[in-house]
């Protein structure tokens, strides 16, 4: 699994992950992200998918899981700059409009400022 890079800006956690989001890595990712998901001080979670070159249905399930979990705690979840491959897979299952998407780093700056 590619390494996770976690940034904290105020009460926003930004997860930057450049690998594939597939069945192969989901369990490890869930374990790695456990601390950030349960972080009481974080009201918003942002997943940077700009460098994610492959997304399958297990990866979609993982993103939906993060979204469900944040939503159930009245917190927010955003996808940052999903790559063309990620956009394609999400649009196949009609989820492109389901997620809150930040189109660029400027929109992320607005969120964290």
């Amino acid at each position: 699994m590619e390494p996770l890079n976690v940034e904290k800006k105020g009460n926003v956690s930004i997860i930057r992950y450049s690998g594939e989001l597939t069945l192969e890595v989901i369990e490890s990712l869930k374990k790695e992200m456990q601390d950030h998901l349960s972080d009481e001080g974080t009201s918003t979670l942002v997943m940077d998918l700009s460098q994610t070159v492959f997304l399958d249905s297990s990866g979609i399930g993982f993103l939906v899981h993060l979204n469900n979990r944040k939503k159930s705690h009245n917190k927010e979840f955003y996808l940052l700059q999903p790559s063309p491959q990620v956009r394609k897979t999400l649009s196949l299952v009609k989820l492109l409009d389901f997620f809150h998407i930040l189109k660029n780093e400027e929109e992320l700056e607005n969120l964290t400022s």
């Binding site: 249905s57 297990s58 979609i60 399930g61 939906v64 899981h65 979204n67 469900n68 299952v93």
Partner: peptide
């Protein structure tokens, strides 16, 4: 539904 966390594999195959 959009909130379902699994079960989209065969659907994706059917679309592709």
């Amino acid at each position: 539904s959009p909130e379902d966390e699994s079960g989209r594999g065969v659907y994706i195959i059917s679309q592709l």
